[in-house]
Amino acid sequence: MWEKKPILLLVLATCAIMVGTIVTMILPFAWVNTEADRIEGVTPYTALQQEGRDIYIRDGCNNCHTQTVRPLVPEVLRYGDYSKSGEFVYDRPFLWGSKRTGPDLARLGGKYPDAWHYKHMESPRSMVPKTNMPDYGWYSNNLLDPQMIQRKMETLGFPYTAEEIKDLEGKNDMDAMVAYLQKLGSDIPWRDAAETTIVGDLVNPYADANQETISGWAPIYADNCAACHGPNMEGEIGPELIGEDYDDEILFTIIYTGITDGGMPSFSNLGTDKVWKLTNYIRTYQAEGSQ
């Protein structure tokens, strides 16, 4: 039979290949990205955001960063609410990635203020000394091409205004990238829903710690706070800490829960112990700055 008939063999092989293809690749179109998947609040990208997305693709950011949070406890704690199908309906192509050399970015939008991203893209190692992310300062020299972007919006069928396109004049790759990063994962109000609540009374476990012990916690400050508040608490992206005088409970709460609308991320995933150490460290040194 087919053992000696190449055309028949080809037809049968095609049939064998098509069964799994139809069931797992073609049929799902009936269920995925349908009305049932829609999530209110998920909107198409603006012209500037879409261009940022195309730059993200151009430079292969997806080779090191994923964009999907799995419904697993450590993952939701680290990155935020798990990803839902309806959040990706405007993504052509999808950018979930396959390797986390750097962290997942699915919930990055709104985590940091714009200034953080500008500084970080310019020189990641100025903020995260041991990172292996390359510098993307050259983005600031690349002007956008508004006409091309308009054509892209037309092709995608995304709504845009003439004014929006006009505003792209003089903007560069960096502006587009930051606009895109700030949109990521922020169409659903997960940040409000997931806001950390502190249960029980706040008692500073290190109230009696001596100066020497407290100075040993400097690396926690350096790794998590210095990028925004300066190595000596002099402030930069975030406000200066010197001279502020919050009490233990208020400072702990600010660090632990963050200030959602103020650009201060929550550091609850450091754990209560490290946050108490930070609280004591900052309170001890904020008079003169850390040394």
Partner: peptide, 24 residues
């Protein structure tokens, strides 16, 4: 894919569908 220009196109599939087709 739908071409925008000679050097740029957008996938014919979106989001989860695109992911499923890509890994198939």
């Amino acid at each position: 894919a739908v071409p925008v220009s000679f050097f740029k196109s957008y996938s014919a599939y979106a989001g989860t569908n695109d992911a499923n087709v890509q890994w198939w």
